[in-house]
Design a protein around this nucleic acid. Sequence first.
DNA 1: TTTACTAGGTCTCAAATAGAGACTAAAGAA
DNA 2: TTCTTTAGTCTCTATTTGAGACCTAGTAAA
Lengths: 157, 157
Amino acid sequence: MSAHRILGDRFAGWQKLALDSSQCPVRNLLDRIGDRWSLLILCALAAEPRRFSALARDVPDISKRMLTQTLRTLETDGLVHREVEPSIPPKVTYSLTPLGQSFAGPMLGLIDWAEANFAQVQAARLRFAEAARTYSASLSAIASPAAKPLAHAHWKL
Amino acid sequence: MSAHRILGDRFAGWQKLALDSSQCPVRNLLDRIGDRWSLLILCALAAEPRRFSALARDVPDISKRMLTQTLRTLETDGLVHREVEPSIPPKVTYSLTPLGQSFAGPMLGLIDWAEANFAQVQAARLRFAEAARTYSASLSAIASPAAKPLAHAHWKL
DNA sequence: TTTACTAGGTCTCAAATAGAGACTAAAGAA
DNA sequence: TTCTTTAGTCTCTATTTGAGACCTAGTAAA
């Protein structure tokens, strides 16, 4: 039985229980780590425990604000451990908890897929862009040159 | 070698190549599916192809706007197929492409983890909330009753 | 002695993004 | 004639994110 069938059955199962995000583990997880930074930070910490500023350096483009916020969330969820060395200024080291480490498996699956299928995704994007270009060209051939893409164009059959 | 070590090494590898989100498959993937809805929609479609309105019903709390937008992104990335039946009003059916189906494996890994470890996450949250309560109680015992949690409190060693 | 620097944040304000809900077109049903 | 149906889109508002200034106090440099 293929993974996508299993997944589908699983989804159908949740529905019967009304998938409420506070109750459903999956909704709950997605609400937490379903953002641009969490997984990236988890990866970085999997490589090695890091201080706050090292993380800020190594996770590109993240602002201190989001870094703080994301780390806090991961900490409350028990995936990340925060340790303060009481010097002045203090030094704070973040590391994965055992629970956080156990999450590495699934994360690795995701990452492997991404690396293996990136080319296909890029190809799909090119095809889509090309299709859109062709379509809009055909539109402007009919309508006035400056015509904007029509809302509800799909309705005009 | 544990998954989290492998993951760490992988991350270290990316860094050398400067992980630029347009080039790096993983950043790229995370920028796309790293949101509240994509994975959920993919799950729903794994269960069975659905029409737009069925998706809106079955994926709870999503607005039409986000549903449209997310489906569009998944379509451009080649994970989802959109098929219009030219009646009036038109009927649009969404389904997983083979590429989308191949993504079910990794997704299932994530979901299994979520279901297996949800209890631990909840326990961590309770511990954290309790710790915060205790801490703020100890603060107000020292400072004036109405004192707000002090900014930079961690500095005062 | 004054100045600069450091680490790990927080705070404010602006920009981007998400959500709520009204609106649309054309045909068929009541 | 009015109502319903479908797959969106549009506008307006609310929430989230990002940029960047600021803070603290001990140590090092000037």
